[in-house]
């Protein structure tokens, strides 16, 4: 795949410009970020719903850059959560088990929901620990309510 793509790039095709959707996207991100900074709700943007010219996804990634946090989680294939150089703006790439991109999102929030430990998973973890620790199942009742 990689070889084919670089071979294609050798053909003298210059894509002059652009869908014109990047600037509005950046505006949307700025508005969303201001809202979050003032204590308001977060925003998720599905990059799959935007008509983008070839190479524009890469441009968006480059424009947003990379910030301090990068998290990788492994759930039904790898997912990379990358904070951009603008704190509070996250670039999320979901891949499947075959490493193919399934969906791309830009999330504007303090912490992407996906990174938080989920209650269901924690309950499951408690019972798993219970089974490993003799006599440790007394507390489980409280959690289940």
């Amino acid at each position: 795949m990689v070889n084919i793509m670089s071979a294609l790039e050798g053909i003298a095709v210059r894509v002059e410009a652009a869908s014109g959707n990047i600037t509005p996207l950046l505006h949307e991100i700025r508005h969303a970020l201001r809202r979050v900074a003032q204590g308001g709700e977060g925003t998720t943007i599905d990059l799959g719903s935007l008509p983008l010219a070839p190479g524009e996804e890469k441009r968006i990634e480059d424009l947003l850059g990379q910030g301090e946090v990068r998290a990788e989680l492994n759930a039904l294939g790898p997912t990379v959560v990358q904070e951009t150089r603008y704190p509070g703006v996250w670039y999320i790439t979901h891949r499947n088990t075959e490493q193919e991109v399934v969906a791309r999102f830009i999330e504007v929030t303090r912490m992407p929901e996906l990174l938080l430990a989920q209650s269901e998973d924690m309950r499951r973890a408690v019972s798993e620990l219970d089974s490993k620790l003799p006599g440790g199942n007394r507390d489980v009742g409280h959690d289940d309510h």
């Binding site: 998720t44 599905d46 799959g48 759930a75 979901h94 969906a103 999102f105 989920q118 209650s119």
Partner: peptide, 25 residues
């Protein structure tokens, strides 16, 4: 053995697949 995180990821991808806004996840 799919975790809740995995399920949420599946739901995000499915919502994207159905062309639903992310707020519908």
């Amino acid at each position: 053995g799919v975790s809740r995180r995995g399920f949420l990821k599946f739901c995000s991808a499915t919502a994207s697949l159905m062309a639903l806004p992310p707020s519908m996840v």
